[in-house]
Structure formats: structure tokens, C-alpha cells
Design a protein around this nucleic acid. Structure first.
Length: 101
DNA sequence: GTCGTGACTAGCC
DNA sequence: CGGCTAGCCACGA
């Protein structure tokens, strides 16, 4: 049973174009709750739509992968599939791929 | 109504 | 760069 908050989060994520990524922080900011970044993470974790909602494009502010319900390995692969480079668990040239809402 | 938990962040050491 | 802490928010028990 999606809550209003969750719907907003997912809706925003759907706006992220292929080959781009965003952060929990920016996402929270986009829905007028700039300090709810952790809550955003919970919304993604409960996301019933996958991969309809590209939650794998959401990473931590420092460019690291962050978490992922289905395993970081999968998340990493999905991003590499979109031509995003990785160095261990960090995105190479993070700002270059960063999508600002 | 209160408490614990978490896919977080920023600050400090 | 790594580790720890406090702060913030939504959600379920």
C-alpha cells in the first residue's frame, strides 16, 4: 500500500534519464523534504515496481553505490549497462553523470 | 503516542 | 582515508 511520500519519490525517479544518476539527498530535496534522505531510502527499499522505477540510479552523495535490496552487484551491473563507469563501489567522474532535477 | 530501524549525510577526530 | 556520532524523516509494531 503505497503512501503519498513513496509515490512522490518513485515519480521523481522515473524522471531520471538513462545514463544518469542522482542521490538520495537531491531526491529528497526535489520532493520538498530535503532532510528526508534516509526516508527516501526506505521508500526505495519498499518499491514494488522494479525495474519500472530505476531505483538503481540513486546513489549516495559521495558517489558510492549505497545499498540495494537485490544486491549491490546487480545494481552495479545495471549502471554499467548504462555506460556508467565504476571504480570498486564508486562511480568514476560522478558529477558528469549526476542528474539535477 | 512512543520506539526502533534504515538503500543517508555532514561533521569531527 | 577510515571510524564514530548526532541529526533527520517515514513507517511499522
Amino acid at each position: 500500500m503505497p503512501t503519498g511520500f513513496q509515490k512522490k519519490v518513485w515519480q521523481k525517479i522515473k524522471n531520471i534519464p538513462k545514463g544518469k544518476v542522482s542521490t538520495y539527498k537531491l531526491l529528497a530535496f526535489a520532493i520538498k523534504k530535503k532532510k528526508a534522505y534516509q526516508a527516501v531510502g526506505q521508500a526505495l527499499k519498499k518499491n514494488p515496481f522494479w525495474p519500472k522505477v530505476p531505483c538503481h540510479r540513486i546513489v549516495k552523495s559521495n558517489g558510492e553505490l549505497g545499498g540495494f535490496s537485490r544486491g549491490k552487484r546487480v545494481k552495479k551491473r545495471l549502471l554499467e549497462k548504462e555506460e556508467i563507469g565504476f571504480k570498486k563501489n564508486k562511480i568514476i567522474d560522478f558529477k558528469k553523470y549526476l542528474y539535477r532535477f
